[in-house]
Amino acid sequence: MMKKILLLAAIALLAFALWPFVRDVGLAEPGALATAYLEQGPAELGTANVVTAIVVSYRGFDTLGEVTVLFTATAGVGGLLARRKGHGKKKAAERGASDASEILKTASRLLSPLLVLFGVYIFLHGHLTPGGGFQGGVVIATAVLIGLLADPEAGLAHGVMHLVEGLSGFAYVALGAAGLWFTGVQEGFLDPRFLPLGELGRLASAGAIPVIYSLVGLKVGAELTGILDAMKEDAE
């Protein structure tokens, strides 16, 4: 009883603290920083999608930190759920895990390559249309997930995944450092302007932003695949 009263009091206090958000503050203009990004982002970096310009370049450090947090969480999941040796195989045979249906198997063979292609399309066009590295990476992880659902016994190629993840992370930092090195006067970490900016709205434009976002996409895809694989692994 006491617990319930305390709980309701805590919820009420939280609601009171959050009340100022609920009142409509009636802003008519974005803040000065947002206005500057909206006005100068497309001209400076050549991206049609301003959110991408912020995620990859203006706030690139946040994204780097975010990828690091994702990596740490993946490592944590993998470490907590580590397979005990010689345990998984026997159990799978014991339980007689039901086979996936023929429809799922055939469809996954058909769909997985298309989904990977779609993911690559999403992160390559991140600077032009909605979407980008995170969304493309998730679509790639979904392609792997369909493969796992169709054939739970198939092991993933861990070596390839580790290679993709490590190399894309390294290339991400290297490109950031290249921005620091090559842009001359207005240098800054993750400045994409050491590659030609090109024409607004073309695929090959916006300097290094498509390259960096593709690397983020590969890294996020590999990490999310790692999480799914670790969660699944000795379910058999």
């Binding site: 803040g31 947002a34 909206l38 912020i54 975010e66 994702l70 996020v220 999310l224």
Partner: peptide, 19 residues
């Protein structure tokens, strides 16, 4: 256009949320 900065922050926050 709407303010893009919160969108960029939330984009990051969703991925972290899954992790």
């Amino acid at each position: 256009m709407v303010d893009p900065i919160p969108q960029a922050l939330v984009l990051t926050a969703i991925v972290i949320g899954l992790a």
